[in-house]
Write a protein that binds this DNA or RNA. Structure first.
Lengths: 126, 126
DNA sequence: CTGTATCCATAGCGATACTG
DNA sequence: CAGTATCGCTATGGATACAG
């Protein structure tokens, strides 16, 4: 409990989880952050097509749900680093089978993995 | 491949899968159909709050994606039965860990399971 | 560099009525 | 019974400009 934006409105764990990862870019953000922490600008470049406003909004929601950690350094120029929390890591692992299903059934097994431990490489390095 | 509504637009298996289960009611439909086939009206009653139009639309998409099978019986009164395909069953299984994550992290482990084989009971019978 | 503010486009969803 | 048609709302997301 304590997280999720519609407390008490879920009929099973799946739709609760869907609420957390339902944003258009969230699984991509998860995918990128799983490899290593990113700052805002790097994240924006790593998630092609997202605008600043939307990226900021999705990060806020993921932060509110305890998935990502936001570390603000009081420097100049400003620096903010985003990383996965422990809960974010477990969510990423729970997403593994779904990613495998998608690769096998939707992509023909041709594309990069989704950060399942032991399968992720340097694809998202950039 | 051959399924998914944005062929070639995915960066990893996860967002491809998200496209398939992204509708507001789709995971619920999956949950209900996993237990046993349902006809349209029964499905509508089993998924509380959905309207006919939206239910029909989501079923069409799931059918186009090869997740559900639509069996039309030429009787009077008309009868149509919806069931999961083999691909739908594997998708349901791939959703298992995510549902477990949601129950543990969002619901406190209090709610019914999502049809993970061996865990589903009569909760969705209704 | 890391955001917020403003405005706008659209997709998805919902209610109701109607048809084969 | 099993849908389709029509209408419209609202939430999400996108583009651009501006701020700390």
């Amino acid at each position: 409990m304590a997280i999720g934006r519609r407390p008490g409105a879920y009929v099973c764990g799946i739709d609760a989880a869907m609420d957390v990862i339902g944003g258009k870019w969230k699984v991509l953000i998860l995918w990128v952050l799983h490899e290593r922490p990113h700052r805002f600008g790097a994240l924006r470049r790593a998630v092609p097509g997202v605008t600043e406003k939307v990226l900021a909004a999705q990060l806020r929601e993921l932060e509110a749900d305890g998935i990502v950690h936001r570390e603000e350094y009081d420097e100049v120029p400003p620096r903010v680093e985003y990383s996965l929390t422990a809960r974010g890591e477990t969510l990423n692992e729970a997403l593994g089978p779904l990613g495998a299903w998608g690769r096998e059934n939707l992509l023909g097994g041709a594309t990069a993995s989704h950060g399942v431990p032991g399968l992720v490489g340097q694809e998202a390095a950039r």
